[in-house]
Design a protein around this nucleic acid. Structure first.
Lengths: 114, 114
DNA sequence: ACTTGATACTTTGCGCTTCTACACATCGGC
DNA sequence: GCCGATGTGTAGAAGCGCAAAGTATCAAGT
């Protein structure tokens, strides 16, 4: 029973931005880190990852440069722009508020609303 | 600055199922309750609500009957099927796992992964 | 030498969901 | 008579994640 779970729309962006915020990384490493940190709960297919990165780049939230990766190969390293950093903050805040609200609702007992 | 926030895809279903699980309600009341409990964080537009209800009904997770509402008007009251109840459980569990994972990632400091 | 697996990026097309906007109907209050 | 709240519904548009396939390099196994 693999604990795989699909990501709700809009969630991937925040996660990517957060990982990139920790320092420049290339796409492949982003997926690895997400999977690693979340203990395999978050698994990002490449078909989700790279389009997302391009979206974020087009929105001006990320910038990319080709550099040599740790393994000696060429890879695109992404960095956060100031706009991206600001966006990350508000998105993080949005997630926190939403998660709290959803937990509140899902935590309801039969008692109902009072 | 109203703390409005759009719902990530897939989240609406769980919330609806949860509200219905507390007892038979009609659609309009579901939206009200969600908004009320979440303190306006969750606001469900009618164009999202009713398609979602129909979806859930078609999937066999909900059943609907026309009854008289509290105000004396006809309304569709939705109830959870056994399948719906089971579905709600797994979905709730999925949400918990995901929320925990996302919080874990968003809570990362500059330190990185260790 | 061949093949497998890991690394690393790209693109296309599908399917699903949500949102905006509109339409229709009844009821109570002003 | 009109407007707001109640209550259900549809149509169109837009967005996003995923599967799938393709490209390419490199290390390690057989």
């Amino acid at each position: 029973m693999p604990p795989k779970s699909d990501l709700p729309q809009g969630t991937l962006d925040v996660l990517i931005l957060k990982i990139v915020a920790l320092g420049p990384v290339h796409g492949y490493a982003i997926a690895q880190r997400l999977q690693q940190i979340s203990r395999d709960v978050v698994q990002v297919p490449q078909g989700s990852l790279y389009p997302a990165l391009h979206r974020l780049e087009n929105r001006g939230l990320l910038t990319a440069d080709w550099k040599e990766s740790e393994t000696g190969r060429e890879a695109k390293f992404y960095s956060l722009t100031s706009k991206g950093r600001k966006h990350l903050e508000t998105e993080t805040e949005d997630w926190r508020r939403l998660a709290e609200a959803v937990s509140l609702i899902l935590g309801l007992a039969e008692g109902g609303v009072r």
